Amino acid sequence: MSLVRVVFVAALALGIAACGWQLRGAGGGGFEGVPVAIEGDVGNRFRDRLAERLRDLDAVVVNDAIDARAVINIMAVSSRRRTVATDADGLASEYELRYRIRFSLEAGGKAGPEQATLARQTVRSSASFAANDDLQGRDAEEESLRRDLQDDALQLLLSRIGRRL
């Protein structure tokens, strides 16, 4: 009976691999060797983080859209905190952080006629955290969570763009 299970699992794995299925985020998308420019009115920290993630995927980050095959246009980046629970005294006991990136993908100067584009899209990530009486501890936790949410949102953005390249 265990041989039947082994054969079944092997056949299932082979079937999944043959159809091209992969875990979300497991592939690097189509960034390898692609010159990509980043445009938009965003802070240097965000731009640097996006450029770093693109380089990790083997993209060539260029400064000018003329030199790019694809241009990532960042229209807005925002982060919000809201109270989601209060205690008996009406003080916040839990917060929710939301992170949002609005972007589009446009053809750059080195794009071919088949270069895919993406209309304006938004990616979001969110998480909750407990309020802490220690203001410095709460601020540090919030900042760490905000960086994690930014990473999650960037992963979603790059996943969408990578499928189009």
Rank of each mutant, 00 (worst) to 15 (best):
M75H: 10
I74K: 08
V60F: 03
D64Y: 00
M75R: 14
A65I: 02
L50Y: 05
R49S: 09
F46N: 03
A70T: 09
A76W: 01
R53W: 07
R45C: 00
M75D: 14
A68F: 01
L50S: 02
R55G: 06
R49F: 03
A76C: 03
A76G: 04
V62Y: 08
L54E: 08
N63H: 10
I74W: 04
L57N: 11
M75G: 11
R47A: 14
M75E: 15
D64P: 01
A51M: 03
E52R: 13
D67Y: 03
R45G: 12
N63A: 15
G43L: 05
R45S: 13
D58I: 04
R69K: 12
A59E: 05
A76E: 14
V61N: 05
I74T: 02
V61E: 06
F46L: 15
I72Y: 03
M75T: 09
L54Q: 04
A51V: 05
D64H: 11
G43K: 06
R47K: 12
N44C: 03
D64N: 13
R53H: 12
G40M: 09
V62H: 08
L54M: 07
D58S: 14
I74L: 15
V61D: 06
A65C: 02
R49Y: 00
A76S: 06
R55D: 12
D64K: 13
N63G: 13
N73H: 10
R69D: 06
D41Y: 12
A65M: 01
